[in-house]
Computed example of a mutant assay.
Amino acid sequence: MADGRYLGACHRLGPITAEHGRRGVTVHVLLDFVYVAEHLWSAAHALCTAGSTEAEGWEAGRLIAILSGDAARAAIRARSCGARVRAARNPGEQLQPRTG
Rank of each mutant, 00 (worst) to 15 (best):
M1C: 13
M1N: 15
A2C: 07
A2L: 08
D3H: 04
G4M: 01
R5Q: 10
Y6V: 08
G8C: 01
G8F: 01
G8T: 01
A9L: 04
A9R: 05
H11L: 08
L13Q: 10
I16C: 06
A18Q: 11
E19V: 08
E19F: 13
E19W: 15
G21R: 11
R22Q: 06
R22C: 01
R22L: 09
R23K: 05
T26L: 07
T26D: 08
H28Q: 11
H28N: 09
V29A: 15
V29H: 12
L30P: 04
L30V: 09
L31A: 00
D32Q: 02
V34Q: 06
Y35F: 09
V36F: 02
V36D: 01
A37T: 02
E38N: 05
S42M: 06
S42P: 04
S42E: 08
A43R: 01
A44L: 02
H45S: 15
L47G: 07
C48W: 00
C48Y: 02
A50G: 12
E54L: 14
E54V: 12
A55V: 06
G57N: 14
W58G: 09
E59A: 14
E59M: 15
G61F: 08
R62P: 03
L63Y: 09
I64W: 14
A65N: 07
I66C: 05
L67K: 08
L67R: 11
D70N: 15
D70S: 15
A71L: 05
A71T: 06
A72G: 07
A72K: 14
I76T: 07
R77H: 13
R79W: 08
R79A: 11
R79H: 10
S80H: 12
S80A: 15
C81R: 09
C81I: 12
A83E: 10
V85A: 14
R89E: 07
N90M: 07
N90I: 03
N90R: 11
P91T: 03
G92Q: 12
Q96R: 13
R98L: 10
R98S: 04
T99Q: 15
T99L: 11
G100F: 04
G100D: 08
